[in-house]
Amino acid sequence: MANLKAMSFDFRKDVVDMIMSGKGGHIGGDMSILDCLIELYYEQMNVSPENWGDPNRDRFVMSKGHSVEALYTVLGHRGFFSLDECIATFSKFGSPYIGHPNNKIPGIEMNSGSLGHGLPVAVGMALAGRMDKRDYRVYVAMGDGELAEGSVWEGFMSGGHYKLDNLCAILDINNLQISGTTEEVMNHTNIVNQVADFGWHVIECDGHDFASLKAAFDEAKATKGLPSCVILHTTKGYGAKIMENKAGWHHHLPNEEEYKEIVEELMARKEAALNE
């Protein structure tokens, strides 16, 4: 198995380069969800450029669409499109690589950007799989700030009602949103119980530990008769101290000094991972 941990720091550098190139992006949430995306696209999901368009492929919906830079990076490395071109043109005039997922890009299932849309859409995909007796799985990633959108709970309700065990919701719990901590802005007192009460099997994991991620998604796959929700405990801005756990880095554009500092730390952490 490749050293995913070491690889994740190279991917983080690509995310930062993309944001520097496009002069903007949602760096904090990219860094918190990235390891989950690597686990899904390299270890868990049956989707690749080769089977893109195959009705039996696994599906991923990025409901927290502002973390598109992390998604582009993983899809680019998996060969869905040229990552170099994506980084060079990101958010620039006429570029297809815009600041939220768009399904004109290979590898992207649905357009998102407005929060609270992904889970209902994923419920529909999972229902279709059941109707057509296909064995694909559907994954959808949401942020913790996103949980304030009422439509999220409509999706939890219908996913639980229809006992969609081919559906896996992912909550990126980094505890921060643009205005501050999720606890201050709109608190979810007990997200584990709240989701479980809607008829879901809830699994918690360390969103930056690949063994923990693997165990969580393996358990979700093995869960029958009800949908699963993997709760990722993550660090917003994970990868460099300067941006970790800082609400201001939700969509902060690093200056040159900050960029150097981030890249140095990413490469140092990569070395440490290689030597583990």
């Binding site: 859409v121 529909g124 995909m125 279709a128 799989g129």
Partner: peptide, 28 residues
């Protein structure tokens, strides 16, 4: 019944689920 989906009083879910069904080849 196999081609019918009740979502309850939840119009956002109604349309989102429909879009997911359509993206997987259904005609909702």
């Amino acid at each position: 019944p196999e081609q019918s989906v009740e979502v309850g009083i939840a119009e956002q879910d109604l349309v989102g689920i429909s879009a997911g069904l359509a993206s997987a080849g259904k005609k909702p």
